[in-house]
Nucleic acid binder design. Sequence first.
DNA 1: AAATCAGCCTGCTCGC
DNA 2: TGCGAGCAGGCTGATT
Length: 289
Amino acid sequence: MPELPEVEVVRRGLANWVAGRTVSGVEVLHPRAVRRQPAGAVDFTARLTGTTLGAAQRRGKYLWVPLSGTGEGFSLIGHLGMSGQLLVQDQAAPDEKHLRVRLRFSDGGRELRFVDQRTFGGLAVEEAEDGDPEGTPVSIAHIARDPLDPRFDDAAFAAALRARRTTVKRALLDQTLISGVGNIYADEALWRSRLHYDRPTATLTRPQALLLLANARDVMAAALAVGGTSFDSLYVNVNGESGYFSRDLDAYGREHEPCRRCGTALRRAAWMNRSSYFCPRCQRTPRVR
DNA sequence: AAATCAGCCTGCTCGC
DNA sequence: TGCGAGCAGGCTGATT
């Protein structure tokens, strides 16, 4: 499941392979893939056809590609959801089973395909938020900056985190507070910080909040570095089977395996319809809830 | 206003 | 072998 590092790999791929190319044709094979387009697939196709793609941008897990020419002022936005992939493919390559959207280009080169098994992801063409100098699309503007963004404000984050009346993992997954963090990197950052997922945010000290942020940033940067090395330049995709599961995870998916700090068997707890992996010794359960 | 959570979606694995 | 349950879980929108 793509989180910030995986989406960043895709962004780089888009910047390398589709920037500067003009869209000659659009095919929507599943309407759900463009459900965020208010006027539907026909409108999506019309707005995209004939435009030229710019350099891909990213905030958290969202991507957007500014359009020029007939699409000036608009962006193609994308979210991979749980299972989305953006692939640069030969036109002759057979359609993927879960191919949802196809973009062809006027140069006759490889096409861009949006493939998504579970259709939690999607594409849309959207205008920039009014007055935003960075051209952030409307539906992305409410998302907080991510920790790899140079303009992320560490001190403001620490203060906002401590002001919340919730628990720390919920806060990490709240994309309006900090973006890009998903279930995997949340568990990794908490393990590195020796914090239990149910720790009330209000009980964190400022140094603890800053340490948690630093750990989240570090683990995502380290994953991005690994993702870069295993990135297959033939594709602009995240391929779950080709190396991203070999990341050096310390917590996620390691139930019953020894903690790399203290040797205690890690546990998995059901949490919010998902799982939390933690060390019961290093990450003590908060006494008061 | 902030916090919470059902629902969306498909493929795979497991137990019976 | 078939079948249902459980699991993977980010985000939207509704509710409290």
